[in-house]
Simulated scan of single mutants.
Amino acid sequence: MDDALSRIFTSLGTGVPVLLLHFATMLALLAAGVLLYMAITPFRERELIREGNLAAGIMTLGIFLGISIPLAATLATSTVWLDVVLWGAVAVILQVATFLVATLIMPGLRHLIEAGNTAAALAMVGVQLAVALLNAGAMAG
């Protein structure tokens, strides 16, 4: 029993620092991805949310989920820190590219979101989440 307990504590001692490093890296990638996303959107989500614009809040939810889903898949399949960083960056880039392509398909998105059109926001979140799940599946490959 003492041998098993010793192995558990040894495992925790080596595993927790790696977990914290990977988790901190993913939080940094999530923050960078969200900031990049918000920088390229034609509207100012934070201002619109402060004004009570539900569509902007829904879009922001989609941004966070759309980026975090493939990042989670990256964490689940990568064990080396550099692998986590590189595949995490790829995940963020693909999700940002998704937004750019989707805005071509949904012209006038800026005006729809600024007007509080929740249907447009939900459609965009649907695109973001669908691509995020495919992206995560491909990364888990």
Rank of each mutant, 00 (worst) to 15 (best):
D2M: 06
D3M: 05
D3T: 11
A4I: 15
A4H: 11
A4T: 15
S6R: 13
R7C: 00
I8E: 13
I8Y: 14
F9M: 12
F9E: 15
F9N: 14
G13Y: 04
T14E: 09
G15C: 01
L20C: 05
H22L: 06
T25R: 00
L30M: 10
A32K: 06
G33D: 08
V34K: 11
V34M: 05
L36Y: 10
L36I: 12
L36N: 14
Y37K: 04
T41D: 05
F43M: 08
F43Y: 13
F43Q: 09
E45S: 04
L48H: 06
I49D: 05
R50V: 07
E51R: 11
G52C: 08
N53V: 07
N53S: 08
L54K: 14
A55Q: 06
M59N: 10
L61Y: 14
L61I: 14
G62E: 13
G62N: 13
I63M: 11
I63T: 12
L65N: 11
G66K: 10
G66C: 09
G66N: 10
S68F: 02
S68Y: 02
S68V: 13
I69R: 02
I69S: 01
P70F: 04
L71T: 03
V80F: 03
V80I: 05
A89M: 15
V90L: 15
A91Q: 00
I93W: 04
A97D: 07
T98W: 00
T98F: 00
F99N: 01
L100T: 03
G108I: 09
R110E: 15
L112M: 12
L112V: 01
I113E: 11
I113W: 00
A115Y: 01
T118W: 04
A120Q: 00
A120E: 07
L122R: 08
A123R: 15
V127T: 13
V131T: 07
A132E: 10
A132N: 06
L133F: 05
L133N: 08
L134N: 03
L134I: 05
N135S: 14
N135I: 05
A136M: 08
A136E: 14
G137W: 02
G137T: 05
G141P: 04
G141E: 14
